[in-house]
Amino acid sequence: MRTTLYTGKGGVGKTSVAAATALKASRAGKKVLVMSTDPAHSLSDAFDTEIGAEPKEMAGGLWAQEIDHTSMIEEHWAEIQEYMTRLFEWQSAEDLAAEELAMLPGMDELFGLLMVRRHHNEGLYDALIVDAAPTGETLKLLSLPDQMGWYVEKIFPVQRKAANLVRPFARRAKSLPPLPEDSFFGAAQRFYEAVMGVEDILTDRENASVRLVANAEKMVVAEARRAYTYLNLYDYGVDAVVVNRLLPESVTDPYFAAWRESQERHLRTIEESFSPTPILTARLFGREMYGLEALSELAEDVFEEHEPLDVLFRGSSHDILKAEDGGYEVAFNLPLADRGDMDLSKKGNELYIRVGGYKRNVLLPDSMTRLSATGASFEGDTLKVRLDDA
């Protein structure tokens, strides 16, 4: 199953772009499901019709779904929630408050991603288009397997053994908190394996990719660049950036001149930041983009030269490598660069590179802010920029 996940800063139009992608793919003869994992569901608004927790047919070959976490709780969280509720009740929380506290922040979005795994296992569709939560929440969720891995593999078995030893004594001592039963640890292990299953699906670069939706605006571009850096860091393939709501050439009123100049400037930053990842564009339409007709127009704009279900780019614009002797190297593939003319500088967590006519402006992880760019060299067609402690 081909899986495409759309994310971007709230309000950039990612839901419309996701729905338009699914519509165009279905009209090419594919059986497509577009689903929203964002608790602030907007797919119903995009299609201008009510959508529920079960897939609903929108048009020939096209289904839509807005995730309701109720069924997913029973499948993935019920035994965990039961223990956590007892723990909060032991701490004198009211029954309803204890149940609410047992639902951790972000669980709605996480259950939505687990639905991706369910659809892959069922195999009812040719393609799955995911309208994900805004970038901040999505990045937290996509990094969750890495964050859970160390705990589950190192600490979790020790806690399970300790609980088995202490539990008989704790049951007789009412002053001690309730200890989890072995079924809790089994449910937690299954939950972790389900989350890992989602990661396996979304990091399969032959069949899955992430697409960033952005507007040509300063804050939106900055967030897209941060998202791109961390997606690459966790090995999620970004195969396109969709720049939405660009002023069309037909708008010539001087009132919009400053806005057009601003968009052109930010578009250049986008090209410098994401190249060679394809940059897809869509114009600002003269009306709200909802309903099948409007979504079809949007799809034609975005995919003017591309098929919506193709993997449009494999690889990344740069790789961050741990050097053998400490420090890091940022590697760029530059087969046609003029190596005789190079400028290199770093300010905070931004790395600026110019090699001949090739310019890049790379946002590094926050942990690299303290590092300095200490040199650069070519190895074949690869430019490696060295970063070390100042």
Rank of each mutant, 00 (worst) to 15 (best):
T3V: 12
G8S: 01
K9G: 10
G11V: 11
A19G: 14
A22F: 01
S26I: 09
R27A: 11
L33F: 06
S44L: 07
E50T: 14
I51R: 01
A59Y: 11
Q65E: 14
E66R: 06
I67E: 08
H69L: 14
S71P: 10
I73H: 12
A78M: 12
I80S: 00
E82R: 13
Y83G: 04
M84D: 11
R86H: 11
L87H: 11
F88G: 09
A93L: 13
A102N: 05
A102K: 03
M103E: 15
M103I: 15
F111H: 10
F111M: 13
G112F: 07
G112D: 01
V116F: 03
H120Y: 00
L128N: 04
P134M: 10
T138A: 08
K140L: 15
L142H: 09
L144W: 11
P145V: 03
D146K: 15
M148Y: 08
M148K: 03
W150C: 15
Y151E: 13
Y151C: 14
E153R: 15
E153W: 13
P157H: 07
P157L: 06
Q159S: 13
L165A: 04
R167S: 12
R167D: 08
R172L: 08
S175I: 12
L176W: 13
P180G: 00
D182I: 01
A188V: 07
E193M: 06
G197H: 00
E199Y: 07
I201T: 02
L202F: 05
E206R: 05
N207L: 10
L212C: 09
K218N: 00
A227E: 08
N232W: 06
N232R: 14
Y234N: 15
G237C: 15
G237M: 15
V238Q: 04
V241T: 12
V243S: 06
N244E: 09
L246V: 03
L246K: 00
P248D: 06
V251L: 10
T252F: 00
F256D: 00
S262C: 00
L267K: 05
F274G: 07
T277D: 07
P278D: 04
T281F: 02
A282G: 08
L284V: 02
R287M: 14
M289L: 15
M289I: 15
E293Y: 06
L295H: 05
A299T: 04
H306M: 05
H306Q: 08
E307M: 01
L309S: 05
D319K: 10
D325F: 03
G326K: 04
Y328F: 14
Y328L: 03
V330R: 04
V330A: 03
A337T: 13
A337D: 08
G340S: 12
D341C: 07
M342S: 01
D343G: 01
I353M: 08
R354D: 06
G356F: 06
Y358V: 11
N361E: 08
V362M: 13
L363T: 15
T369P: 00
T369A: 09
R370P: 06
S372M: 02
A376I: 00
S377Q: 07
F378C: 03
F378H: 02
D381V: 11
D381I: 07
T382H: 02
L383T: 11
L387N: 02
D388W: 00
